[in-house]
């Protein structure tokens, strides 16, 4: 029998990272991503998501909730992204669909649509400032916030994890190499 195991390929494979120690850039690998849409005023919808993921849907704009296995990110007033460990996305998608049943909602597995990378280190904010129009000052955007925005020519979905600062950045895979190299280039002056 022919070996049919699928080898996963990331657009970030083999790319060189920043040289110095003030900016770290790493791939988040094949973290699973599922988009869910629904009405957060509908108790059936909210409960179903809570039952399956163990995490409350964040209804405050630009925030996220983390659980043991899953984390849920606010993307819009009726849209959230759920992140799962690698290879957890199909099981989550199936479980959500089953649980939600006829409840008005939409569940889409977008794991292969976004590449995810982590930008961190003392100069990470300075690097982001070079291409983002967002006000990144800690009084406006801090740990616990997430948002869709732009970086240079790429539309990104960005999460701030901690005050180091550490950012997780999700970008459409066709933009991943461009964004990565932009970060590396922008990091140069910080060593």
């Amino acid at each position: 029998m022919v070996e049919t195991a699928i080898k996963k390929v990331s657009p970030l494979d083999g790319l060189a990272g920043p040289v110095g120690g003030n900016v770290k850039l790493t791939s988040n690998g094949f973290v699973g991503k599922v988009i869910i849409r629904g009405d957060s005023d509908n108790k059936d919808f909210v409960m179903a998501v809570k039952d399956v993921t163990g995490v409350e849907i964040p209804t405050t704009a630009l925030t996220f909730n983390e659980g043991e296995t899953y984390s849920i990110y606010w993307m819009g007033p009726d849209e959230w992204m759920i992140m799962t460990p690698e290879d957890g996305e199909v099981a989550l998608e199936t479980a959500l669909r089953e649980k939600l049943g006829e409840t008005p909602s939409q569940v889409v597995n977008v794991s292969d649509y976004y590449a995810s990378m982590r930008l961190s280190g003392p100069a990470a904010r300075e690097v982001l400032k070079k291409g983002s129009p967002l006000d990144l000052h800690p009084s406006k955007f801090k740990a616990g916030n997430c948002t869709g925005t732009r970086f240079a020519h790429a539309t990104i979905f960005m999460v701030q994890r901690d005050e180091e600062p550490t950012y997780d950045i999700n970008v459409r895979i066709s933009f991943a190499e461009y964004l990565w190299n932009y970060f590396v280039e922008a990091s140069r002056e910080f060593g």
Binding site: A61, L62, G76, P133, L134, D135, T147, T149, R150
Partner: peptide, 11 residues
């Protein structure tokens, strides 16, 4: 109305 003040290039 959902995200607050942002740069025009996002719109």
């Amino acid at each position: 109305p959902f995200c607050g003040e942002r740069d025009q290039t996002e719109f």
